[in-house]
Amino acid sequence: MVVAAVLVLVVLGSIGFHLFSPWWWTPIASNWGYIDTTLVITFWITGFVFAAVVLFMAWCVWRYRHRPGRRADWTPENRRLELWLTGATALGVAAMLAPGLWVWASFVTVPEEADEVEVVAQQWFWSYRYPGEDGRLGRADATWISADNPLGVSPHDRFGADDVIVDGGDMHLPLDRPVKVLLRSIDVLHNFYVPEFRAKMDMVPGSVTYFWLTPTREGEFEVLCAELCGTGHGFMRGYVLVETETQFNAWLGEQLTFAQTQQDAPVRFAGPTGGTP
């Protein structure tokens, strides 16, 4: 009796917590509303299954509790029931998977017109690089990193000279323009995570990863590292400012280009090995 009641309470409590507690996701600030929708669909389907299974179990525990003289029925299996349940489950799974894969397809398809911006991670802060006038980022590699060239931009690539370097400051993004965020790490794994954007991706030393989004809300959002990267992981934070295109362009104009940062110091090769360019 008590057990059945507690099982019912667990279901009611869980649903009540879901509906009435104040804890829910942060308001979205990107175009990935579809991800939220898929998540809500998943909540509905799984919530229904959870309630159905546990409530049925509670009913069984109460209805078929042991009483003197009681004997269990003999039902070693029931093919029709089992096939029916299997079919229903497969249907429910498909109802979650299909929208999921559809949204994933758009998540991994970067629109042609997307601007590029690069995020560079290292223990334990963020740097950023914007393509300059030419709209293209120059090549970069960890082997070129030195005190004067913290992001390792190749001095031999003509596209790199006008790249805008933001070393350790905040990230700025223009509103309503699709942007392909290129992710690079120069030491260990990191993960560029802005909760309001919903998108995130690991940064892997030795390769360049990416995701894309369109910021849809002006504001200042916190950047966190979401892949354990050492003792300072919990403090590896920064800010991204989403602002109008005019504000963004004004800000971009004030930043130093790679060529400007290299004026005083000649570019040196760093490191014990030549590496592969």
């Binding site: 579809y34 991800i35 898929t38 799984t46 959870f50 546990v54 999921g100 894969l101 909760p195």
Partner: peptide, 28 residues
Amino acid sequence: LGFVVTFVNGGLTGLFLGNVVVDVPLSD
């Protein structure tokens, strides 16, 4: 009985994380 409740609960949240695009905001 406790196992069935917690396993169903945990198994169902696995469907969030297994469904690749839903995993993106939730992972880590």
